[in-house]
Simulated assay, not measured.
Amino acid sequence: MDVISRTFHPAVTDAGVAIPSRHLPIVERCVDADDDAVLITRCTRPEAPLAGDYLFLLTRRRLVVIRETPVLHRLRLHLNVNLRHLSNVSWRPDLSRPALELAATAVDGVRERFRMKFSDTESVWRFESVLRDVFLRTA
Protein backbone atom coordinates (compact mmCIF):
# COMPACT_ATOMS: atom_id res chain seq x y z
CA MET A 1 0.00 0.00 0.00
CA ASP A 2 1.43 3.40 -0.91
CA VAL A 3 1.81 6.41 1.38
CA ILE A 4 -1.18 8.18 -0.18
CA SER A 5 -3.65 5.36 0.46
CA ARG A 6 -2.20 4.39 3.82
CA THR A 7 -1.75 7.75 5.55
CA PHE A 8 -2.56 10.78 3.38
CA HIS A 9 -6.25 10.05 2.75
CA PRO A 10 -7.00 9.12 6.40
CA ALA A 11 -5.21 12.29 7.60
CA VAL A 12 -7.23 14.41 5.15
CA THR A 13 -10.45 12.82 6.36
CA ASP A 14 -9.42 13.35 9.99
CA ALA A 15 -8.60 17.02 9.35
CA GLY A 16 -11.89 17.62 7.56
CA VAL A 17 -10.30 19.61 4.73
CA ALA A 18 -10.82 19.22 1.00
CA ILE A 19 -7.52 18.49 -0.74
CA PRO A 20 -7.66 18.29 -4.53
CA SER A 21 -6.03 15.25 -6.09
CA ARG A 22 -3.64 17.46 -8.06
CA HIS A 23 -1.59 17.87 -4.84
CA LEU A 24 -0.87 14.14 -4.75
CA PRO A 25 2.04 13.99 -7.25
CA ILE A 26 3.95 16.56 -5.19
CA VAL A 27 3.21 14.68 -1.97
CA GLU A 28 4.35 11.39 -3.50
CA ARG A 29 7.67 12.94 -4.55
CA CYS A 30 8.34 14.41 -1.12
CA VAL A 31 7.19 11.74 1.34
CA ASP A 32 8.81 8.35 1.74
CA ALA A 33 6.57 5.29 1.46
CA ASP A 34 7.18 4.32 5.10
CA ASP A 35 6.59 7.82 6.54
CA ASP A 36 3.16 8.43 8.08
CA ALA A 37 1.25 11.67 7.57
CA VAL A 38 0.12 12.98 10.95
CA LEU A 39 -1.25 16.47 10.15
CA ILE A 40 -2.74 17.96 7.02
CA THR A 41 -4.43 21.31 6.87
CA ARG A 42 -4.68 24.49 4.88
CA CYS A 43 -2.72 27.47 6.14
CA THR A 44 -1.57 30.98 5.26
CA ARG A 45 1.63 32.90 5.87
CA PRO A 46 1.04 35.89 8.20
CA GLU A 47 3.81 37.93 6.58
CA ALA A 48 2.37 37.35 3.07
CA PRO A 49 -1.44 37.19 3.35
CA LEU A 50 -2.03 37.72 -0.38
CA ALA A 51 0.45 35.04 -1.50
CA GLY A 52 -2.24 32.37 -1.73
CA ASP A 53 -3.22 29.32 0.23
CA TYR A 54 -0.82 26.68 1.42
CA LEU A 55 -1.22 22.99 2.14
CA PHE A 56 0.61 22.04 5.35
CA LEU A 57 1.61 18.37 5.56
CA LEU A 58 3.47 17.06 8.58
CA THR A 59 4.77 13.51 8.72
CA ARG A 60 6.84 11.81 11.40
CA ARG A 61 10.01 12.88 9.55
CA ARG A 62 9.17 15.72 7.14
CA LEU A 63 7.38 19.01 6.79
CA VAL A 64 6.00 19.65 3.30
CA VAL A 65 4.26 22.90 2.41
CA ILE A 66 2.69 23.37 -1.02
CA ARG A 67 1.68 26.83 -2.23
CA GLU A 68 -1.33 27.41 -4.46
CA THR A 69 -1.17 30.73 -6.30
CA PRO A 70 -4.26 32.91 -5.86
CA VAL A 71 -5.15 33.72 -9.47
CA LEU A 72 -4.08 30.78 -11.61
CA HIS A 73 -4.18 28.17 -8.79
CA ARG A 74 -0.80 26.76 -9.77
CA LEU A 75 0.92 24.50 -7.28
CA ARG A 76 4.48 25.15 -6.15
CA LEU A 77 6.52 23.33 -3.56
CA HIS A 78 7.26 25.95 -0.90
CA LEU A 79 9.05 23.83 1.71
CA ASN A 80 10.20 20.23 1.87
CA VAL A 81 12.44 19.66 4.86
CA ASN A 82 13.44 16.90 7.22
CA LEU A 83 12.30 17.80 10.75
CA ARG A 84 15.86 17.38 12.05
CA HIS A 85 16.89 20.30 9.82
CA LEU A 86 14.44 22.72 11.44
CA SER A 87 15.50 24.79 14.42
CA ASN A 88 13.74 27.12 16.84
CA VAL A 89 10.40 25.45 16.21
CA SER A 90 7.60 27.08 18.16
CA TRP A 91 3.84 27.25 17.96
CA ARG A 92 1.22 29.33 19.65
CA PRO A 93 -2.48 28.50 19.92
CA ASP A 94 -4.88 31.40 19.52
CA LEU A 95 -8.18 30.34 21.06
CA SER A 96 -9.92 33.65 20.44
CA ARG A 97 -10.01 33.02 16.65
CA PRO A 98 -9.44 29.70 16.84
CA ALA A 99 -6.08 29.29 15.12
CA LEU A 100 -2.56 28.07 15.62
CA GLU A 101 0.62 29.72 14.40
CA LEU A 102 3.76 27.67 13.83
CA ALA A 103 7.22 29.15 13.24
CA ALA A 104 10.49 27.39 12.42
CA THR A 105 13.88 28.27 11.02
CA ALA A 106 14.85 26.24 7.98
CA VAL A 107 18.38 25.02 7.29
CA ASP A 108 18.99 28.01 4.97
CA GLY A 109 18.31 30.41 7.87
CA VAL A 110 14.90 31.56 6.64
CA ARG A 111 12.27 31.88 9.37
CA GLU A 112 9.02 30.32 8.15
CA ARG A 113 5.67 31.14 9.75
CA PHE A 114 2.36 29.46 9.06
CA ARG A 115 -1.10 30.24 10.43
CA MET A 116 -3.72 27.50 10.54
CA LYS A 117 -7.37 28.38 11.15
CA PHE A 118 -9.82 25.91 12.64
CA SER A 119 -13.55 25.63 13.12
CA ASP A 120 -13.34 25.12 16.90
CA THR A 121 -10.93 25.23 19.82
CA GLU A 122 -11.02 21.45 20.17
CA SER A 123 -9.25 21.16 16.80
CA VAL A 124 -6.63 23.66 17.92
CA TRP A 125 -5.79 21.53 20.96
CA ARG A 126 -5.74 18.33 18.89
CA PHE A 127 -3.28 19.84 16.39
CA GLU A 128 -1.20 21.32 19.21
CA SER A 129 -0.97 17.91 20.83
CA VAL A 130 0.26 16.31 17.60
CA LEU A 131 2.83 19.09 17.08
CA ARG A 132 4.11 18.57 20.61
CA ASP A 133 4.36 14.82 20.06
CA VAL A 134 6.20 15.09 16.72
CA PHE A 135 8.57 17.95 17.48
CA LEU A 136 9.48 16.99 21.04
CA ARG A 137 10.20 13.44 19.87
CA THR A 138 12.63 14.68 17.18
CA ALA A 139 14.41 17.08 19.54
Rank of each mutant, 00 (worst) to 15 (best):
A37S: 07
T105G: 03
S129L: 10
M116F: 09
C30D: 01
R6T: 05
S21K: 14
V27Y: 06
D53M: 05
L24G: 10
C43S: 09
L39Q: 04
R6A: 05
L77D: 05
D133R: 15
R115K: 12
A106W: 03
T59I: 04
R132A: 11
R137N: 12
A15N: 00
S87C: 14
D133L: 08
L79F: 08
P46Y: 02
L55R: 05
L136D: 04
A15F: 00
G16Y: 00
A48Y: 09
S96I: 08
D35E: 07
I66E: 07
R45P: 03
L24P: 07
L102I: 14
V17L: 04
D32W: 05
M1T: 12
L72S: 14
L77Q: 10
A139S: 11
A33P: 02
R84W: 07
A33D: 13
E47T: 15
L131C: 15
H9S: 09
I19C: 07
E101V: 15
D35N: 02
W125N: 12
V17G: 00
V27K: 02
T7Y: 01
V124C: 08
A99P: 06
I40P: 00
V110C: 09
V107M: 12
L83M: 10
V134C: 08
A18F: 11
E122S: 15
R67K: 14
F127W: 06
L79E: 10
R113W: 03
P46S: 06
L39H: 03
L57M: 08
V12S: 00
E101Y: 02
E101T: 13
R6W: 01
L79V: 14
L102V: 15
E47S: 13
H73S: 08
L24T: 14
P49G: 06
F8N: 00
W91G: 07
E68K: 11
S119K: 02
K117F: 01
P46D: 02
T41Y: 07
H85S: 15
F118A: 09
A11L: 01
R84P: 00
S5K: 11
P46G: 06
L63A: 10
R60C: 14
P25H: 04
V12Q: 03
Y54Q: 11
V130L: 13
A106D: 11
T121C: 08
L102W: 02
W125H: 15
S90N: 11
A11D: 00
Y54H: 05
D2E: 12
L95F: 04
V65L: 11
D133V: 09
R60S: 07
E68N: 06
I40V: 09
V110E: 13
S21A: 13
A139H: 09
R113A: 10
A99Y: 02
D14A: 14
R60N: 05
R22M: 11
H73F: 13
T44I: 15
M116H: 03
C43I: 01
N80T: 04
Y54W: 06
A104M: 08
V134N: 03
L102H: 03
L136N: 09
N88W: 15
V110N: 13
R111C: 08
D14Y: 01
D53L: 07
M1E: 07
I40S: 00
R97Y: 04
F127Y: 11
L131R: 00
R92N: 15
F8E: 01
P20Q: 13
D2L: 09
K117L: 01
V38C: 12
A103M: 06
L39F: 03
Y54R: 06
E128H: 10
F135V: 06
D120K: 03
